[in-house]
Every structure is written in structure tokens, then in C-alpha cells.
Amino acid sequence: MKSLLAALALTTALTLPSIASARPVTLTTTLKDYGGNGAYVALYVTDATGAYAGSLWMAGGKSKYYQHLSDWYRATNGNRAEIDGITGASVGAGRTLKITLDLADALFDAGYELHIDAAVEDMRDSPNEVAVPLTSAGAGKATRGRRYIDSFSYNF
């Protein structure tokens, strides 16, 4: 009985941190009415040194266009494994893309930055359209984009 309880306590202790180490985070990206076709949008994260840490979402499913998300492409070499399971449709002008992801707590208040590259057919590419530090204090605050993105925010 004691060994059973000990095993239970051990598994609980091992399980709890993994549950607590991630939380749902909603990333909201609203596009401007730029008067063009749907935008390809890449959301990805760099660490405190500025090095690429990983992708959070890819809006747009055709890999042949990814080279136009140039900062993301340079960091990943267009590797589809970086975005398998986190890819959706491109986003139309004036529309709002709302993604809820289970993100590691370690991403916040640790120097990580979220970046967004955007590209629209027959219009200028827009790498690093948004760059925003991931902090607890920054949650809920809107950041404006440079060309196609009207605003971006994240919420816990």
C-alpha cells in the first residue's frame, strides 16, 4: 500500500509541473483593408539572443510562397517540419485571425520576442511586420504592424 501511494505521489509530482508549465494563449492578428488578396502570415519566436526559437503559426498552406516571408524563411530554410500541425489558410484583408495555442510559460518574461512576417500577392513583402516582446505585462496590449497588419495582441 505504501509503495502504491509513493508511486502515486511520484507520478503526480512529475505530472503537475508539465501541466503548469504551459497555458492557453490567444494570439489575435487583425489585417488592414489593404485591397489585395489573402495574406500569408508567419508568427514565430526568437530568444533573448535574437536566435530563431520556433514557429507558432503559419497562415497560408503553399510552401512555394514561403520564401516571401523572408525573415522566417531565412531562419528556417523553409523547413515544413517547423510548421506541421500549426498551418492554416491565408487571411483576407480586413479579417481577424485568432489562434489559441497551449504555450510554454518559459516563453514569457524571459527575453523572447514574437515576430510576424507577412506577404500578399502582387504587393510588397513585409518581413518583421510586428516584433513584440513576450511579457506578462504586455498581455492585452495591441501592437500596430508596418504594412498589412492593423494590430496584434496576445492574451492569457
Binding site: 504551459a22 500541425g85 492554416g88 489559441t100 510554454a104
Partner: peptide
């Protein structure tokens, strides 16, 4: 498929909505 194992994600499934 599951999101990449890049250390950024927990175990939850991504949810997406376009308005």
C-alpha cells in the same frame, strides 16, 4: 498532426478562428 516539438508548445490542440 501534433504541433512541432520545439519546446514552445504544451499538450493542447491549436484552435483557430477567422472573423
Amino acid at each position: 498532426v501534433a504541433p512541432p516539438k520545439n519546446g514552445l508548445f504544451g499538450t493542447g490542440t491549436p484552435k483557430v478562428q477567422v472573423n
